[in-house]
C-alpha cells in the first residue's frame, strides 16, 4: 500500500516536472524567436525575481491572492463543482471591501477591516453561490453560468470604478484611498509584501483539515468523488452543489479584499485581474490539495514576477507569463504525462 502511494506520488511529480519543463521550454523558444536580446530576457525571466529584494518581496506578495483563490478553486474542484467565475468574484470582493472602508473612514481599523473582509467574502460567496443555486435547483451548467455571471460583474464593476466611485481629486481612474488604519502591515519593505501571507498559509492548512477531517469536508469530498454514492448513502448532494461554490466564491472575495488592503489601498480598474484564472492553475498544479496550494501559488507568482522582470529589463512583454501558464494548463491534466497515476478527476459536465 505504501509502495503504491510512493509510486503514484513519484509519477505525479515527474509528470508535474515534465509539464513545467515543457512550459518553460516554450517560453524560452518564444523569447528566442521574438527577442532581440534573448540572453538578457531569459536571464531576467528565470533569475529576475531573485535579483532584488524588492522583486522577491513583490513576488511573495503576489502569491497571497493566488493562495486564496487557489484554495477556493481546490475546494470547488474537490467537490466536483466548477467555478469559472473567480475573476468576477475576486473583483467584486475588492470593490465591496473598498466601498465599506471608504464609507467608514473613522472606524477603528480592526472593526472596519473585519466588516470589509466579511462583506467581501459574502459578496464573492453570493455571486458564486448564485451559479451553485441555479445548478442545484434546475441543473444549469455551473461552469458556463459562473463564467458568464463573472464576465457581466466585471464590466459592471469597471463602470463603478471609473464612474460613480472615481476619485475626482486625481486624474487616474481609481477610487479614493482607504484609510491608514485599514492598510495591512508591510513586513518586507520596500516591497509590498504584507502580513496577510501568514494568514494565507494558516488558512491553507486550516482548509486541508477542514476538507479531510470535518463533517462538511468529508461530505463534500464524497460528493465530489462519486455523487451517486453520496446520494445513496444519504448525503444531501443537492446542498453540496451550492455549498462548495459559495465557499469557493468566499475565498475569491477574500482575495479581492486582501489585495486592496495589503497592496493597492484603493480600488482600481482590473485590481484583481488574473487572480481567478491563476487560481485555477494553482489548484490544478496542487492537485486540489490545500497545502500544496502554498508552493503552487509561489510558483505562479514566480512566473509572473519573472515575466515582469524580463519586461522591465529587456524587450519582451509581460504576457509571456500567460503563455507559460497556458502551457501548464494544457498539460497538467494530461494523463499520458502522468504515467500510471490517474486520479480520474471527473471534470466533465
Amino acid at each position: 500500500m505504501n509502495r503504491q502511494r510512493v509510486a503514484s506520488l513519484m509519477s505525479s511529480v515527474t509528470g508535474l516536472f515534465l509539464t513545467i519543463a515543457i512550459a518553460f521550454a516554450i517560453v524560452v523558444l518564444m523569447i528566442l524567436i521574438l527577442s532581440d536580446e534573448p540572453g538578457r530576457a531569459i536571464y531576467y525571466f528565470f533569475i529576475g525575481p531573485f535579483t532584488r529584494a524588492y522583486y522577491l518581496g513583490n513576488m511573495l506578495n503576489q502569491s497571497i491572492g493566488l493562495m486564496f483563490t487557489g484554495l477556493g478553486i481546490a475546494v470547488a474542484f474537490k467537490s466536483s463543482t466548477f467555478n469559472l467565475g473567480g475573476e468576477g468574484q475576486a473583483y467584486s470582493g475588492a470593490i465591496v471591501a473598498t466601498v465599506i472602508m471608504l464609507a467608514l473612514p473613522n472606524m477603528p481599523g480592526f472593526v472596519g477591516g473585519t466588516a470589509a473582509i466579511v462583506a467581501a467574502i459574502l459578496m464573492g460567496a453570493f455571486i458564486a453561490g448564485l451559479s451553485g443555486f441555479f445548478g442545484m435547483k434546475w441543473g444549469t451548467d455551473q461552469l458556463i453560468s459562473s463564467f458568464l455571471l463573472s464576465a457581466a460583474v466585471i464590466l459592471i464593476i469597471n463602470y463603478l470604478v471609473t464612474g460613480p466611485l472615481d476619485d475626482p481629486t486625481n486624474s487616474m481612474l481609481t477610487t479614493p484611498r482607504i484609510g491608514q488604519q485599514y492598510q495591512l502591515l508591510r513586513i518586507f519593505k520596500p516591497s509590498k509584501l504584507d502580513i496577510s501571507i501568514v494568514f494565507a498559509a494558516i488558512l491553507a492548512i486550516g482548509t486541508y483539515f477542514f476538507m479531510q477531517r470535518s463533517h462538511w469536508g468529508y461530505e463534500m469530498r464524497m460528493c465530489g468523488l462519486n455523487r451517486e454514492f453520496a446520494k445513496y448513502a444519504g448525503i444531501n448532494v443537492e446542498k453540496y452543489l451550492m455549498v462548495p461554490m459559495a465557499i469557493s466564491g468566499g475565498f475569491h472575495g477574500l482575495a479581492g479584499a486582501i489585495v486592496v488592503m495589503g497592496t493597492h489601498y484603493r480600488g482600481l480598474k482590473g485590481v484583481t485581474a488574473g487572480l481567478g484564472w491563476n487560481g485555477i492553475a494553482v489548484a490544478l498544479i496542487a492537485k486540489n490539495n490545500p497545502i500544496a496550494v502554498i508552493p503552487a501559488a509561489l510558483f505562479f507568482a514566480y512566473l509572473d514576477a519573472g515575466a515582469r522582470a524580463a519586461m522591465l529589463h529587456s524587450d519582451v512583454t509581460f504576457e509571456l507569463a500567460s503563455i507559460a501558464r497556458a502551457m501548464i494548463f494544457f498539460l497538467v491534466t494530461a494523463q499520458a504525462l502522468y504515467g500510471l497515476f490517474n486520479s480520474k478527476k471527473k471534470v466533465t459536465k
Binding site: 477531517r213 470535518s214 463533517h215 462538511w216 468529508y218 461530505e219 469530498r221 464524497m222 468523488l225 462519486n226 454514492f229 453520496a230 445513496y232 448513502a233 444519504g234 448525503i235 486520479s343 480520474k344
Partner: peptide, 26 residues
Amino acid sequence: GASLQSSVRENCIVTKHHDFLKAGVL
C-alpha cells in the same frame, strides 16, 4: 455502492459518519 477513489475507511463510514462526529470533526 462504493466510492472507488476513496479509502476503505471512508467507504465504511459513509452511512454512519455522524456517529464519529465531535463538534463537526470526524
